[in-house]
């Protein structure tokens, strides 16, 4: 009960923060829409897509990249919460959280869940706008994708959390953009399927196949089309466990990076 009270409060706070930051919401929405409308239109001509699961017919490129853009929203959101965590550490409100008598892993998990829910809200708004552009799915697909989004949101949030436990200053955050977000996004199946990657380089294909973001995107893609993808599910769960475990360790005063921070 005590646990739940704290978790709900953390989620409510995150949600209210998000609602207040309308520009953040718009930016989060405009980014994937620009990709969908501008980028996809340009690439449609250049890229021929064959029929690959979970699709059962030929699809246009716009249809292909929708799940990847859902993943992109969550990736950016995860990094954004990581950024706000670094900010919180500098500003002190993270200390407030960490001096609560509840176990740290629970507080951090609550924080992750809050971030994931905020990202899911953005994904659904994006899917609604995409539907406005004529990219519609099976109605059940919108339901089935929810658990997939929770998992991928938690996994990407945990990655952000892990990064925030190793970064000490806000200034270092530009590096995260260059070395985490971009490679993760471009070296995944968000924009091109694996076989397309393999055509140009086997190495790139292998990197894509190892990238946890690829599996998050595939999990979302298959869920949207009501197909199970246990392999992606397993990968996303394992990555979450790994990132979260390392992040909890990073925030543990006995082991972690906080030791090096002077109070």
């Amino acid at each position: 009960m005590i646990y739940l009270v704290a978790m709900l409060a953390i989620i409510r706070r995150e949600a209210m923060r998000f609602v207040r930051q309308r520009s953040r919401f718009l930016a989060a929405l405009v980014r994937p829409l620009v990709w969908l409308v501008v980028f996809a239109a340009g690439f449609r001509a250049a890229l021929g897509l064959s029929i690959i699961p979970p699709y059962q017919t030929y699809i246009t490129y716009e249809v292909y990249i929708v799940p990847g853009l859902c993943g992109m929203i969550q990736l950016f959101n995860g990094m954004q919460s990581s950024l706000s965590l670094v900010y919180d550490q500098e500003m002190g409100s993270m200390r407030l959280l960490l001096t609560s008598p509840l176990p740290r892993w629970w507080l951090l998990l609550s924080k992750l869940l809050a971030g994931a829910l905020v990202s899911i809200l953005q994904v659904y708004v994006f899917l609604a706008v995409a539907a406005g552009f004529g990219i519609t799915l099976d109605p059940w697909g919108y339901v089935a994708v929810l658990p997939a989004l929770v998992l991928s949101g938690l996994m990407l949030g945990a990655l952000g959390l892990l990064i925030s436990s190793t970064i000490r200053q806000l200034e270092n955050f530009a590096g995260v953009m260059n070395f985490v977000i971009f490679p993760m996004f471009f070296l995944s199946t968000a924009l091109y399927p694996l076989w397309k990657m393999a055509e140009s380089s086997q190495l790139l294909r292998d990197i894509c196949a190892w990238n946890p973001f690829t599996h998050a995107v595939e999990l979302i893609r298959f869920a949207l089309y009501l197909h199970p993808n246990l392999w992606a599910l397993l990968w996303v769960c394992l990555s979450f466990a790994l990132f979260f475990g390392a992040a909890v360790l990073g925030y543990d005063p006995a082991h972690g990076m906080t030791r090096r921070r002077k109070g």
């Binding site: 005590i2 009270v5 704290a6 709900l8 409060a9 953390i10 609560s100 509840l102």
Partner: peptide, 19 residues
């Protein structure tokens, strides 16, 4: 402090962290 929340909301958030 969370500057955009009311005094009472700040207080309640902290109370919740203590269950």
């Amino acid at each position: 402090l969370d500057l955009d929340m009311s005094v009472a909301a700040n207080m309640r958030y902290f109370a919740a962290l203590h269950g």
